[in-house]
Amino acid sequence: MSPTDLRHELSQCLARLWRYAMVLSRKPDVADDLVQSTCVRALERCAQVVDRAGADRWFFSILHSIWVNELRAQHVRQGQGFVDISETDVPVDTFSFEDRHWHTQVMQRVNALPEAQRNAVFLVYVEGFTYQEAAMTLSVPIGTIMSRLAAARLTLAKDTATGAQPQQGEKK
Rank of each mutant, 00 (worst) to 15 (best):
M1Y: 08
S2A: 08
P3N: 11
T4S: 14
D5T: 13
L6D: 06
L10P: 01
C13A: 14
A15K: 14
A15D: 09
A15Q: 13
L17T: 06
L17Q: 09
W18D: 02
R19W: 04
R19S: 13
Y20W: 06
A21F: 05
A21S: 04
M22Y: 04
V23Y: 00
K27R: 14
D29W: 14
D33A: 13
D33H: 10
L34C: 02
V35Y: 05
C39V: 09
R41N: 05
E44R: 15
C46H: 15
C46V: 04
C46Q: 11
Q48T: 12
V49H: 00
D51V: 07
R52M: 12
A53L: 06
G54I: 02
G54E: 13
D56W: 04
R57A: 11
F59L: 01
F60Y: 02
I62N: 00
S65A: 04
S65I: 03
I66D: 11
W67K: 01
V68L: 13
V68I: 14
H75I: 08
R77W: 09
Q78P: 04
Q78H: 11
G79W: 13
Q80W: 14
Q80S: 14
Q80K: 13
G81W: 13
G81M: 12
G81N: 12
F82N: 12
F82L: 15
V83Y: 15
D84P: 07
I85N: 09
T88V: 09
D89L: 12
D89Y: 15
P91S: 10
V92P: 02
V92Y: 13
D93G: 11
F95A: 05
S96T: 15
F97D: 14
R100V: 04
R100C: 03
R100K: 11
H103I: 06
H103F: 15
H103L: 11
V106Q: 11
V106C: 08
Q108Y: 09
Q108A: 10
N111F: 11
A112E: 08
A112F: 03
A112T: 05
L113Q: 07
P114D: 06
E115P: 02
A120W: 08
A120T: 12
V121N: 05
F122C: 10
F122K: 02
F122E: 07
V124W: 05
V124K: 12
V124M: 02
V124Y: 10
Y125Q: 03
F129N: 06
F129K: 02
T130L: 00
Y131L: 10
E133V: 10
E133I: 01
A135E: 03
M136D: 15
L138Q: 08
S139T: 13
S139E: 14
S139Q: 14
V140I: 14
V140N: 01
P141N: 11
P141G: 14
P141F: 03
I142M: 13
I142T: 15
I142A: 13
I142D: 13
G143S: 11
G143P: 01
G143M: 01
G143K: 10
I145R: 07
A150C: 02
A150K: 10
A150W: 00
A151N: 01
A151G: 06
A152Q: 08
R153W: 03
R153S: 05
R153E: 06
R153T: 05
T155A: 06
L156I: 00
K158Y: 01
K158W: 05
A161P: 03
A161K: 06
T162K: 11
G163C: 04
Q167R: 15
Q168Y: 12
K171G: 09
K172A: 14
